[in-house]
Amino acid sequence: MRLVTISDIRAAAELVGPAVLRTPLLPCAWADPDRPLWLKPENLQPVGAFKIRGAYHALAKLPADVRALGVVAYSSGNHAQAVALAAKLFGVPAAIVVPDNTPQVKIDATRSHGAEVHVVPMTERESRARYLAHQRGSTLIPPFDHVDVIAGQGTIGLEIAEDLPSVETVLVPVSGGGLISGVAVAIKSLCPDARVIGVEPALAADAADSLRAGRRSASWPPAMRARTIADGLRAEPSELTFAHMRELVDGIVTVSEDEIRAAVTLLARQSRLVVEPSGAVVVAAYLNRRDELPLGKTVAVISGGNLDPALLAELLAV
């Protein structure tokens, strides 16, 4: 199994430039002085999440004649939007399969880019996508289990290392593991003394259990992972992403649903950022797991901001 390298990520950075915003590092005035915090606001990307990096890179790497046959993806929402936008930018058709618990705001955004959207039960999203790809002769662009997707997501780590070479801790949301895999490759290559820590909801802590055991856990079925409000963190790592995590990630901490909700509210009020629960888990960990995290300069990767307006209003009303 070939793992992604820093050379792959540097090459990806060249390819994704036309579609990706180089997000800044935002210092937090409300942070602990002993643990200065910078936010990497990927919610500012064109699709409101980091996923455009990996999706666009994967499409850019396809031969033109293969890409012209179209692409298919399955996703809980943000990868769906990213593949839909990347396909639109390349002028090729896209069919996207999403589970029936996907927030409507993400489904609507995916359709707005011209993609064909199929809504299915959560357990059928991958099989339906593979069927559509086979039926149409299109290329399947998975949300994380692909070296080109991982390399694209790794450009986040490359930017962090370039903008804050003295970074000591990087906090990254964990779902299928593509984001933390790519970020960890870049950070460990360029800032080898820095620690890369994953963050998961306690209600979907399959990656944390797997990392502790040294092998992928089979004890977290989809129905259990679906309980968390962090809808973008309900997937489980693949063999490829887990191999990256086992080699490069220093640990994973978990946060509660109440802590996630409070972090969404804090980011809106204190940092003026609209962040979805999946992106807010890193700030929840920063605020509530200090005994499990090292001191020093910390960057929290805010993975996305595609939050249902009704949920945001509910959280801000508390």
Rank of each mutant, 00 (worst) to 15 (best):
S112Y: 03
H113R: 08
A115C: 04
A115I: 09
A115F: 04
V117K: 12
H118D: 10
H118F: 14
H118G: 02
V119D: 08
P121V: 10
P121L: 12
T123G: 00
S127A: 15
S127N: 11
R128K: 14
A129N: 02
L132Y: 06
L132V: 08
H134A: 15
Q135V: 14
G137K: 01
S138W: 07
L140Q: 05
I141W: 04
I141V: 15
P143T: 14
F144M: 08
D145S: 14
H146R: 03
H146M: 06
V147N: 04
V147D: 09
I150P: 03
G152W: 01
G152T: 04
Q153Y: 09
Q153E: 12
G154F: 01
T155E: 00
T155W: 11
I156E: 04
L158E: 09
E159Q: 14
E159H: 13
I160K: 09
A161F: 01
A161L: 00
S166K: 09
E168K: 13
T169S: 03
V170P: 03
L171E: 07
V172L: 05
P173M: 07
V174N: 05
G176W: 03
G176E: 02
G177S: 07
G178Y: 01
G178W: 01
L179C: 07
A184K: 01
A186R: 01
A186I: 04
K188N: 12
S189H: 12
S189P: 11
S189K: 08
S189W: 06
L190H: 05
C191Q: 04
C191D: 11
P192C: 10
D193V: 01
D193S: 12
D193I: 00
A194V: 11
I197A: 02
G198F: 00
G198D: 09
G198Q: 02
G198I: 00
V199L: 02
E200C: 01
P201K: 11
A202Y: 03
A202Q: 13
L203S: 15
A204L: 02
A205W: 00
A205V: 08
D206A: 14
D206Q: 07
A207V: 12
A207L: 05
A208H: 14
S210K: 07
S210C: 12
L211P: 03
L211H: 10
L211T: 06
R212A: 15
A213T: 12
A213D: 14
R216S: 13
S217L: 05
A218N: 14
S219R: 12
S219A: 15
W220R: 09
P221T: 12
A223Y: 14
A223N: 13
M224D: 15
R225L: 13
R227T: 15
A230N: 01
G232I: 08
R234H: 02
A235F: 00
S238C: 13
S238K: 08
S238F: 11
S238D: 10
F242Y: 11
A243Q: 14
A243L: 06
H244T: 10
M245Y: 00
R246I: 08
L248I: 12
L248N: 05
V249E: 00
V249S: 00
D250V: 06
D250N: 03
I252Y: 07
V253Y: 06
T254A: 07
